[in-house]
């Protein structure tokens, strides 16, 4: 385990927020949020990218001036020629570390330093070691891994000098599709979607027939209905060898969320009041941590001491 202070990463914004709101969001993150790294870029739907791509240099510059590391995330599902070109252009970037979110980007980034995102299947030490040999310096693991698996992967990460990252807050990305379920639920086709996903800045709630909240639809992406909360597990994960924790942006006060995680990692705030604070910051939301415990991801179980 490295002695360095664990770092916080603000993951890519999954939702389709208007450009002005995104700019304001990142300006406040730059000025106030105690995060070390910010991942920028549209990872969910290539149709949304033109709305914000032109703002990325300016936003990245602002974050860097505030001392944050900026990473550019690649598209999760790459099919069309224009999307492939986008990945190639991104991977050629001289200025930023690129986070690969599919095998197209993994291929394009091979041979130079890069990061691997949680949407790439890294489930075991052999695969992690292979990624490291191909130039990965940082790997954010898939959300469904158990603590035991993370522990085994941490060994390989340490042996190869790879930084290991685990998502600790926010909706979990559970699936990606060629179809747009936001458009479908609005009686529209993907080609003529009218960007209806903009209506739901935290995802469109999807409930069961019994009315129980279940999932969240975000265009072609399906997310967990619950927010992941690993506040009670940070120290244990840290001792297993996890170097970084990822906070996934939601429609709530992300500066306060980052402060809460930072305070727990620093040891200045105990877990119990931190948990209460997190619930106050996200009224009406349910929380989960089941994957880490090897049970259903949607469950919330008390931490194993």
């Amino acid at each position: 385990m490295s002695v360095e202070r664990p770092k916080l990463t603000l993951g890519p914004l999954h939702f389709h927020w208007p450009a002005a709101r995104r700019r304001d969001f990142y300006a406040r993150i730059a000025d106030e949020a105690p995060v070390d790294t910010v991942v920028l870029g549209e990872v969910v739907c290539s149709k949304r990218a033109p709305f914000f791509d032109s703002h990325i240099p300016e936003v990245a510059e602002r974050l860097r001036r505030a001392g944050k590391e900026v990473v550019l995330g690649s598209l999760a599902l790459v099919m069309q020629a224009r999307e492939r070109q986008g990945v190639m252009d991104l991977a050629a970037s001289e200025d930023f570390l690129v986070e690969a979110n599919d095998l197209t980007a993994v291929a394009a980034c091979a041979g130079r330093p890069h990061a691997i995102g949680p949407l790439v299947a890294v489930y075991n030490p052999s695969t992690l070691e292979l990624m490291a040999r191909q130039g990965a310096t940082r790997v954010c693991l898939p959300g469904e891994l158990t603590a035991d698996a993370i522990g085994a992967l941490a060994g390989a990460a340490m042996a190869t000098g790879t930084q290991l990252e685990v998502q600790a807050f926010g909706r979990l990305p559970l699936a990606i599709s060629a179809r747009c379920y936001h458009a479908r639920a609005h009686g529209l086709h993907k080609d003529g979607c009218r960007y209806v996903c903009e209506k739901h800045p935290d995802g469109m709630d999807l409930d069961t027939l019994d009315g129980a909240p279940f999932l969240a639809v975000n265009g072609v992406q399906t997310l967990s209905g619950s927010y992941l909360d690993l506040l009670g597990d940070l120290h244990r994960l840290r001792s297993l060898g996890v170097d970084r924790f990822r906070l996934s942006p939601q429609d709530c006060d992300m500066v306060a969320v980052a402060e809460t995680f930072h305070a727990v990692l620093d040891g200045t705030l105990p877990v119990t009041p931190a948990r209460d604070r997190l619930r106050d910051l996200c009224p009406g939301r349910r929380f989960s941590n089941g994957f880490l415990r090897g049970v259903e991801g949607m469950a919330y179980r008390a931490a194993v001491i």
């Binding site: 060629a178 994957f291 090897g294 259903e296």
Partner: peptide
Amino acid sequence: CVMAEGRCQLSSYVTGQSPNT
């Protein structure tokens, strides 16, 4: 599968058993 194959955690979110592993 209507979701991209090998990249879907819906079933494990509900059952705790991952199709992937």
